[in-house]
Amino acid sequence: MQEFIIKWLHLPPLASEHGAEVDRLLFYVHLLMVVLFVGWSAFFLYTLWRYRQRRSPGADVVGVRGHLSSYLEVGVAGVEALLLIGLAVPIWARTASAGNFPKPEDSTVIWTIGRQFNWIARYPGPDGVFGRGDVKFVSQQNPLGMDPEDPAGKDDIVVESSEVVVPVGKPVIAYVSSLDVIHGFAVKPLRVSYDAIPGLSNPTWFTPTKEGNFLITCSQLCGNGHSSMRGLLRVVKPAEYEEYLKSKAPVSAGPVSYE
């Protein structure tokens, strides 16, 4: 089924858990669309042929009798309501509403921060806590303006190379934000997409099911580098993930960029 949906709708091969639901909804909606369109088109073409002037010189003023149309309209409304209540709302509740997020302790918590024109990834480090930050600390070495005084920040890992690494098979909670203008954090195969808005950090979560290098697309117009603001989400084995973090661990206190 999943395979068919992806082939039929030309979707990117799926690589996340919740993605299956998104695809299913996409499929049902498009099914409704095709049925309506084909049905109406048939009616349309037949009518044009049947009632062309040569074949029906005089119009039948009353035209359609009965309540067919009303039934049709109610039908469409019904199906829409069904999709809305049955799928759309629940899926959104599961994937987006704060209530249903997985527990931080059994998931990978990261920050993905957009900037003209690349992505910054931030990991909490061993203590699992992100340090405080403020603009007044911002500098070339410290793009996020993290507070050097804050112990929690000491072990935070900041990677500025537009590369985000997460372990496979475990929920990822990503806080999406931006330093300057609005960007969009989109990873098509994982059915993940969220606006990166300065001043906000929007949490979104997903569970990668496949290892691989997935493109991070910037989905919101963010200036003349928008089209080239390409990132890489590397989904790796848990062990590999640990290795990666070690390799990036800050040597000195305070975050340093590794490029």
Binding site: W40, F43, F44, T47, L48, Y51, R52, Q53, S56, P57, G58, A59, D60, V61, V62, G63, V64, S69, L72, E73, V76, A77, E80
Partner: peptide, 20 residues
Amino acid sequence: SIPSVIILTTLMLTLWGGSI
């Protein structure tokens, strides 16, 4: 989307029985 559906449906059904 419902009123739009109604409008379109109505216009479509107008064709029925016409002398086009």
